[in-house]
Amino acid sequence: MKYIEKLAKIDRRIIYLILFLTVLLPYLFKISLPMKPLPEVVQAYREIDRLPAGSVVMISIDYDAASMPEVQPMLYAILRHCFSKDLKIIMLGHWPLGIPLGIAALEDVAKEYGKKYGEDYVFLGYRPGVAAVMINMGKEIRSVFREDYWGTPLDSLPMMRNVHTYDDIAILVGFEAGSTGDYWVQYAQARYNQKIILGGTAVVAPDWYPYLQSRQIVGLIGGLRGAADYENLVHHKALAYYGMTPQAAVHILIVIFIILGNIGYLALRRRK
């Protein structure tokens, strides 16, 4: 029984070491596992896929570097999907520290597909005041963003000439690591009937299932799994897809640790 009781007292440094190796080894040996995309991700993919060429997609960067490993691969996958279908992109953000991540992804993927700034994509940048920004954009985008992020007046950008309100935007994709996604639903969807897809960390994604069921959002990309599914759907397997094996291994490891901890705990409790 003593050995079983020891299971309740594994040193945390051993746990850290095993966890570290569990993450590292699948990356070193590049092991990948087959996955069937989640229905909510397929739904998001189809909504974008059925848009006609030239439609405008607005992307909001509402995360920063802390959530980058989960959310950035989603952004790349969606951008690849949009540019491959000749959709126009307007990007903005409500998290100032995440703005450079959006710029980097937009420039990378635009270069990959030979897209031109001002004609195929525009970066609006950041304005403080989250809810007020969302409400005013429903009346006129220029009331909030007179110029793009680089100081060019919006009317001098060919792509923006006919884009004024949410009515001119086919889908809004919010990449989230906090509660900004809720604001998009409350203001852009509820007030202006804007179609929304939300993508975000695995921590915040469960909060959006009620919106998905009530059709207030038309797609949900949650966590690294969601990102990997989207990469799979656009046939461009990258960081998220290869990150799923370490994540699967860690999930299994944590479940094993929980079972071991409980065996030890039960053994101790019985003795007491």
């Binding site: 594994i10 945390r12 746990i15 966890l19 860690v250 944590i254 640790f257 901890g261 409980n262 705990y265």
Partner: peptide, 10 residues
């Protein structure tokens, strides 16, 4: 991982 092992008790 460490907290799950220590705190999740049935």
């Amino acid at each position: 991982a460490s907290a799950a092992y220590r705190a999740f008790r049935a």
